[in-house]
Design a protein around this nucleic acid. Structure first.
Lengths: 340, 340
DNA sequence: AAATTTTTGAGGTGCGCACCTCAAAAAGAT
DNA sequence: ATCTTTTTGAGGTGCGCACCTCAAAAATTT
């Protein structure tokens, strides 16, 4: 057993009450004594007994996931992971809940956030496209004591906000590397397809992709990104046009998390085989496509890992613990048919 | 808060003492009452409060990792992960320790296991090549109440032994897929290199590899596996001979976890560029080789993940909890330069 | 029916911490 | 020097469970 608060009090030359005040930020402690306690913590290597703290605190941590209302298969998987964790997390004194927000319009999103009662949550993980009104709403929540973590999409508030998610630029670069390797010496054009170019993730992925292709595989020519606007008809039309315009196309890169639309469009156009196809996010659609050989690789991030990481970070923030950063980096996974 | 033991006792119509006897296997409970408690657990959805249990139990779980004495960079990473977890796990009431065993000889290994005092451990995770004497030694430990988990190498004892590690056949298949894709339409031979063919892991990987190559990329010819016996000189010699014998070699597959030897041999032979090279396990050697483009891909399993998973499983066994199996499958990771 | 064994219940203790109250001490203000 | 404010300490309570003892009740044997 490590040293207890009692040992800490003795080592610091203060009472248990003062130790408690320092450990739990209750204020009303002179700088001198506070420093004495801090020094003693270092010296004797005190570590709060998590089990005892959880038991005594008795109050479950209320963690919220703020998630857009509209979203496809990947988001569903994230939601499922949250649910899974809920049943498991009950014994760990955490209550998870999901808050769906409007995401079409920055102001609506901000209003959804503003509607969150700061008393209901100890921390929230926010997935939402950045915007000034949203930022203000988040800052107000933060001011009322809710810890904010950005989830999948970066938020820039004051100070350092933890971020849970992959590095999209590196993800795009990974896709570029695979595309280059899969195409080999073969010359040709690569067609990137996205839902929209508005999203920051898409842009970052494209940047990473172009970077690798340009530097390592200069014989491959990346075409301008096609936008589907999440509309199957439009997808089929623009893809068809693009493929006709560039018959030398030999690779297709689906930048967007939602691969279902483009994949079925490509299937109808008979463009699935013969072309190297790389997509993002593991969903039932991409899994199946990998298995039958329509897709060659999928770049993905594990939703379960995302959720667990977010929960760990939020808990650490609430309990004023430091997190083991190395454990929290979300890996960029590469999936092929054999390692599903 | 979920229901407590008090609620459980009331629901089952028994006393707290009986509930305690059932929950902690103290015996001396009639079948009838035991079933009543079990039924009540289901009915009211009782879940032991892990924090309170850990606190009351007071006794840290003593978990052991049984690891071969000889081992390369990958094993070092595993050991490092165990150490990392140790500092972190102290607050979680677990004490990890590592037991190094002889591994050259099955009898020596068995004797090392036999030397383990069953009173010192609640559970151990064993990494050792299977053999009848080893099996006996493990069974004796199990009989004395130590929970056994197989770690990286499967152990077949009585009943079901948990296994922590990747599916080596699938790992080999993944390597085969990448090799096939990277080589593209290019015909040629692929040279698999291993330390020795004795190890089960190596065999399984080779099987998976051949399976994919044979079925999906029949124009590629896998050569017989080269054995280096972990000897750099021998490695250089056999590789050189093999490459001369088959000038059409265009891919090399390093089956073994230790890539350092073969990689430097290949470097001296100037066989690194021009050939597609795939290896196993992330180490500083494979990382560097990936970055500079000598290696094209690495198939790996995360040591940190391995250790955490093993600990979770051992704890669950000791505390008679069921584990969330989905969370415990170790992923087969694919690494390229961009997703390190 | 008596003696034995097995099963059950009542009750207590302590794990390490969070959170609370109240009084005493120290520091600062007037 | 008195009053006010801030800081400190002593002490208590309870979280849910593990683990213990002892006596009473029930089931089994003799």
């Amino acid at each position: 057993m490590g040293p207890t608060t009692k040992d800490l009090a003795r080592a610091a030359g203060v009472s248990l009450a003062t130790v408690d005040r320092v450990l739990n930020d209750r204020g009303g402690v002179s700088l001198k004594k506070a420093q004495a306690v801090a020094a003693a913590i270092e010296q004797i290597g005190f570590e709060r007994n998590a089990a005892a703290a959880a038991l005594a605190r008795q109050r479950s941590l209320r963690l919220g996931f703020v998630i857009p209302k509209t979203g496809g298969a990947f988001l569903d998987k994230v939601l499922l992971s949250i649910q899974e964790y809920e049943t498991l997390g009950r014994s760990e004194m955490t209550i998870l809940s999901v808050i769906r927000i409007e995401d079409k319009d920055a102001h609506k999103a901000a209003r959804s956030i503003a509607n969150i009662d700061a008393n209901d949550f100890d921390a929230i993980a926010v997935m939402a496209t950045q915007s000034p009104p949203l930022r203000d709403a988040l800052l107000r929540l933060a001011a009322r004591g809710v810890h904010i973590t950005s989830f999948l999409t970066k938020q820039e508030l004051e100070g350092d906000v933890d971020f849970v998610g992959i590095d999209n630029r590196a993800a795009g670069a990974t896709a570029g590397r695979l595309m280059g390797q899969f195409l080999g010496r073969q010359k040709g054009a690569v067609l990137p397809i996205a839902e929209s170019l508005q999203s920051r993730d898409t842009l970052e992925r494209r940047l990473g992709f172009d970077d690798v292709i340009g530097n390592k595989y200069p014989h491959i020519r990346p075409l301008p990104t096609l936008e589907t606007y999440a509309d199957p008809d439009r997808a089929r039309k623009v893809i068809s046009t693009a493929l006709k315009a560039r018959p030398d196309t030999s690779g297709i890169y689906l930048l967007t998390g939602e691969a279902a639309g483009p994949v079925s469009a490509l299937r109808e156009l008979n463009a699935l085989h013969g072309n190297i196809l790389i997509a993002h996010e593991r969903t039932s659609v991409t899994e199946d496509a990998l298995r039958v050989g329509e897709l060659d690789a999928v770049i993905s991030q594990d939703p379960g890992h995302l959720v667990r990481s977010a929960v760990r970070i939020m808990r650490a923030r609430c309990e004023k613990r430091r997190t083991l950063a190395s454990q929290e980096r979300i890996r960029i996974e590469i999936l092929v048919a054999e390692n599903l």
